[in-house]
Nucleic acid binder design. Sequence first.
DNA 1: CCGCATCCGGGGCGATACTG
DNA 2: CAGTATCGCCCCGGATGCGG
Lengths: 220, 220
Amino acid sequence: VRSYHQYCGLAKALDLVGDRWALLIVRELLLAGPSRYSDLQRGLPRIATNLLGDRLEALISSGVVARTEAPPPVAATLYTLTPWGEQLKPILLALGKWAGPVMRRGRARGDRFLSHWLALPLEASLRDRYPDRRPITIALRMGDRPLLVEAGAGEVRVRQGAVAAPDAVIEGTPEAVFALLLGRIDLATARERDLKFVGDPSILRRVQPRLPAAAKAMAR
Amino acid sequence: VRSYHQYCGLAKALDLVGDRWALLIVRELLLAGPSRYSDLQRGLPRIATNLLGDRLEALISSGVVARTEAPPPVAATLYTLTPWGEQLKPILLALGKWAGPVMRRGRARGDRFLSHWLALPLEASLRDRYPDRRPITIALRMGDRPLLVEAGAGEVRVRQGAVAAPDAVIEGTPEAVFALLLGRIDLATARERDLKFVGDPSILRRVQPRLPAAAKAMAR
DNA sequence: CCGCATCCGGGGCGATACTG
DNA sequence: CAGTATCGCCCCGGATGCGG
């Protein structure tokens, strides 16, 4: 709300999205698409309702977010990112990746976790390493709502939802599921951390960005 | 200083560098390298000295910034980015680029400007389009301190300083100099905006990312 | 319920003064 | 030059209220 009054691109960007909660609101809109006020509240634990209102108004007046009215059947006001706002996506991903060292320390006491928060970094990290094989689906259970990892034709998508017969099911703590999918630990290590895996373990190689660190000890 | 308490990469990143002034301090350290306390103050107009102290301490304790002691001749404490902190560079560049539409509106009344703030976005935008020709130097005068654009061997560097015999000298408002170098306006238009150019105008093509918009009217 | 608006206590922020 | 100390103020956070 308060400007730096500097003619500098970074300072101007921070004038717009540097206020507390602003970028997290953008995150929610990126992850969930058009959202209602209460959807945003659910995705932003501990945000004060007046702040959500203030930030939305500021983001709208600066052209990052747009307010749209939903069609009559379910009349509701929806908030969406403008095309300009969507261009923040790679920046949010880069910031999340930059904080990797902190995330790897694990969940601090008092940290809240919503499973869809991992959708963006996962989608950015995973690869479809065998584009010619048939599409596969991996179901993730690690928080409030289930996620689906879908790989096929060289693309990987991570979205909220469930499916009748996934090719594999992974259930465990966010840290363990994330580390396993990224190949930072192997399945045996993950199982020691109470992770449950159902399906053919070789399916992990389909999406892992790197091989499970077998020679992990050597690197240390 | 106050955490979001969310197990999410973006939230963790904002816990570290989301506080007011934090990213601007990182900007100064990126632009100027190891800096003294008062150097930082000069580069951050209107920052309160207690905030600078608080932020530096927080950034140090989180491993983004390091405090180093300068060698005896000029005994002084210097602040530097850690390797981890330097990895914020592409993110700061992306944020600055994202704010392009706001910058293009020009300098708002009350906006302060320091010339070195443009070094990063310029270096990120310019190209050496004729790597085989001899290196060239363009001097920029548009604010408090002169900048140098050096192109050669396919690389472009923008740094603070002056040189005896530059191949060209550009002097004018930040907006005009920036727009000319980026090829958004041609030299005639720039001169209408009180920009002074000394040297061979063809040197501009050496570094411009795109050709001066001759058919600018058509695009509107 | 959903979508806010209002009120209020506490602390982050900003400006100034002060000290080694 | 390099910070620390002090003091308002306003932003932030939490709770409550209230119309649609």
